[in-house]
């Protein structure tokens, strides 16, 4: 799922030395367009779909779609990262929505239960 950044949302992480997506990408693929000052994936075919950039984007500007060669259009998978969990919204190609809340870190509440 090569990441696509929405130009109306991406602000290039102004104030950061480099945008967060560029900072975290394990493949060194996210980079800033020198003219528009917005982030993009320099080589979509090289992306492993780990979604690290999508989760890291502070403005939820990066969207995940599947490569058309392997799946029908349209469809989206949106992670919303919380403190101890991530909420995933999957919208399939017919517009059906599914939501999943997945734990990501042990939270103080868990420790109380123990």
């Amino acid at each position: 799922m090569p990441p696509k950044a929405d130009p109306t949302k991406c602000d290039g992480c102004q104030g950061e030395s480099e945008p967060l997506c560029e900072q975290v990408c394990p493949g060194n693929l996210m980079t800033l367009d020198k003219e528009t000052r917005k982030a993009y994936c320099r080589e979509p075919g090289d992306c492993w779909d780990c979604m690290t950039c999508t989760k890291a984007c502070p403005r939820q500007a990066i969207q995940t779609t599947l490569q058309y060669q392997i799946a029908y259009f349209p469809g989206k998978l949106i992670p919303l990262v919380g403190t101890n969990s991530v909420t995933w919204t999957s919208i399939d190609c017919h517009g059906r929505v599914e939501r999943f809340v997945m734990k990501t870190l042990v939270s103080p509440d868990d420790e109380d239960e123990d």
């Binding site: 799922m1 995940t64 998978l77 999957s90 919208i91 190609c93």
Partner: peptide, 15 residues
């Protein structure tokens, strides 16, 4: 979703 999120969307976009 905890390790290979693309599969969930793949199922959703391939019925």
């Amino acid at each position: 979703l905890d390790m290979s999120p693309s599969l969930v969307l793949y199922w959703g976009c391939n019925d």
